[in-house]
């Protein structure tokens, strides 16, 4: 099976966000990057699918050449090759332009199933996967926590407010991955060595104007200073008084 895993290079979740002087974006000085948390689950599911059904896993991303580091990490965990659609202004892309560029590449690769994280942990759009599927005219199940794939169809479960929903779909399809789907493996030394020899291709991403114009980016308003109402169980009374008469939330 021709399997594609889409990943995004995002700031580490530990990042303390600062705003650039022009008030237009995240100040990236000193920021370190990682593969978005949910995308690691997507890569794991792609490799598990290859192990079950055979085929090849391509890791696909849009970003700067520096994303090679994240691609290699994925290759060390069992993926076969990497492609970076290079765009130095990747942080300015909206979900539409990202989905369209990925769709064109997936089509060119002849992908049969695409795995992506449910959302990237920088913009939290949770949109690129289902948009990509729509541009391709494919089935898509989002936030998947359980998956059974066969050569031409699959059954996926996703969590909603109503409960656990079970979907049947035919391939090709895009699956966006939620945390409970699997436990990503660690890269062994052998995998890390092998990854160095695996091909990573860089091609410029198709340009597409963003439809989301940034007016400003700011830090959230600081919460007003709170107070410790007391120590130990004796403080419960003071807390209840505060919640009832001051905060009025009870």
């Amino acid at each position: 099976m021709n399997i594609v895993a889409c990943i995004k290079r995002v700031p580490m979740t530990e990042t303390q966000a600062k705003v650039t002087a022009d008030g237009q974006s995240l100040d990236t000085s000193g920021v370190e990057y990682m593969t978005s948390f949910y995308d690691e689950i997507a890569v794991e599911e792609a490799v598990k699918t290859k192990e079950k059904l055979g085929g090849e896993v391509t890791v696909l991303t849009i970003g700067p050449s520096d994303a090679t580091k994240q691609i290699r990490e994925c290759l060390a965990k069992g993926s076969d090759k990497g492609i970076i659609l290079t765009d130095d202004a990747w942080a300015l892309r909206d979900c539409r332009s990202t989905a369209k560029a990925l769709a064109a590449k997936v089509q060119e690769l002849g992908g049969e199933v695409v795995f992506a994280g449910r959302q990237a942990t920088d913009r939290d759009n949770a949109s690129v996967g289902p948009m990509l599927a729509t541009y391709l005219g494919w089935a898509c199940v989002t936030d998947v926590i359980e998956l059974e794939l066969e050569a031409d169809k699959g059954v996926a479960k996703r969590e909603s407010e109503a409960g656990v929903e079970t979907y049947e779909f035919s391939l090709p399809a895009v699956i966006t991955c939620q945390k409970d789907l699997n436990e990503p493996r660690y890269a062994g030394l052998k995998g890390i060595m092998a990854a160095k020899k695996k091909p990573v291709e860089e091609v410029p991403a198709a340009e597409e104007a963003s439809q989301a114009e940034v007016v400003r980016v700011e830090l959230p308003p600081a919460r007003k200073e709170g107070r410790v109402v007391g120590e130990g169980p004796d403080a419960v009374e003071a807390l209840m008084t505060a919640l009832q008469t001051e905060a009025k939330v009870l």
Binding site: P11, A17, T121, D122, D124, Q211, A212
Partner: peptide
């Protein structure tokens, strides 16, 4: 249309205008 939405799970707040 102007929207406000959190980035990075609310570490930043972005105000955006649509040209879609």
């Amino acid at each position: 249309f102007t929207m406000v939405r959190p980035w990075m799970a609310g570490k930043l707040i972005a105000t955006l205008k649509s040209t879609a």
